[in-house]
Design a protein around this nucleic acid. Structure first.
Lengths: 130, 130
DNA sequence: GTACGTGCAAATGATTTGCGTTAAG
DNA sequence: CTTAACGCAAATCATTTGCACGTAC
């Protein structure tokens, strides 16, 4: 959609690398702390600006759990398992489910569907014990 | 899960009524403005407290679009069509898709799935024109 | 009657903005 | 070179909290 004219600054490169390596869905603060290891002088405002920027450009994705923004670098279509107790998010791959959803999407009128994912809500193992 | 001991105050009843009648997915402010018509003295803190309370009790549901919390009173399982441009959310009913997702969910281990829904991301008619 | 909810105002926390300086292309 | 991005601090916006008073049950 708008994949041109991207200035690859050190800050953006580090954020992208961090998200690529991170196994999970970090919050803004977690991205900030992680990137600060390499770029000691980076400011949190820059992290905010770039997470939004990169999301707009489609290079990363924003996920939401319990009202908190989280981010992921995994652009391969996948689904999310969300614990309603602790807010933890786990990825779940199911190409069949994606395909099925896209098939359903063909019936939707007056809207151009570009992507789809499914959320599974419930309780993770840890929270079930309590 | 925790459907006992609910004190039905005027404030809670009005919030539930408002969400029942509202065609869409209002933000906290929209709920506040809507409820204030009947209950002129209600405070925004009370709206916040009760939206969270009612969500915890499972009487309403929280939805999220572009980092903003929104709420709905429609508890019948359904899906969401989300415009990535303007953040607008529309409901979409497809029992087949829900059933299919729940079938897929049976394969998930170490997690108790209680509900599922699918998001369709893209551009709404209004935003496509621009 | 009592515990829980309310309204208010103040506190906290998250996110954005303005601006002089710096660096990518 | 020139334009966009950065870092910082201040500003804004969203949400939560503490507490005296009121009300559902």
């Amino acid at each position: 959609m708008e994949s041109k004219n991207i200035k690859y600054t050190n800050q953006r490169i580090e954020i992208l690398n961090f998200l690529k390596d991170f196994d999970g869905h970090p919050t803004v603060d977690e991205v900030y702390e992680g990137v600060k290891v390499k770029l000691t002088r980076i400011s949190k405002a820059t992290v905010y600006k770039n997470l939004r920027f990169l999301t707009d450009k489609g290079l990363i994705r924003e996920v939401n759990s319990k009202g908190v923004s989280r981010f992921e670098g995994n652009l391969v279509p996948h689904h999310h398992i969300i614990c309603v107790e602790c807010g933890d998010i786990t990825d779940y791959e199911s190409e069949e489910l994606t395909d099925y959803s896209l098939k359903v999407a063909e019936d939707i009128e007056n809207f151009k569907v570009e992507a789809t994912d499914t959320n599974f809500y419930g309780f993770c193992g840890k929270c079930l014990e309590e």
